[in-house]
């Protein structure tokens, strides 16, 4: 490990906290991979009506938090990254 890495290194406290935050979001939502796949297919189908998208490189996941919730003050967000191949009217 170089000296720079020693200074740049995240503490294990921070790593633990970051991992937990992401982990608990998916735990709390309790969303199965099968359901995510169904959501993904439906979104792709709807958007395909309006533009040409790259479904093989499309990503969707539940991540990050925003807004207000009863307990931790945060709610999960559905994140989608959909590459557009061609905008057509």
């Amino acid at each position: 490990m170089s000296i720079l890495n020693i200074f740049r290194r995240k503490t294990s406290r921070q790593i633990a906290k970051d991992r937990l935050k992401i982990l608990l979001i998916s735990d709390r939502v309790n969303c199965s991979p099968e359901m995510m796949e169904l959501i993904k297919n439906d979104i792709a189908e709807v958007i395909s009506k309006y533009m040409k998208i790259d479904t093989s490189n499309m990503e969707i996941q539940i991540s990050k938090t925003a807004g207000e919730n009863s307990r931790s003050g945060k709610v999960p967000v559905l994140y989608a990254n959909i590459p557009i191949l061609d905008l057509r009217n």
């Binding site: 503490t11 294990s12 406290r13 921070q14 633990a16 906290k17 937990l20 935050k21 608990l24 307990r71 931790s72 003050g73």
Partner: peptide
Amino acid sequence: GEMMTVDDVLDILG
């Protein structure tokens, strides 16, 4: 910096 603090735990569990 090798253990989560009380505030970290409270922040997560609320």
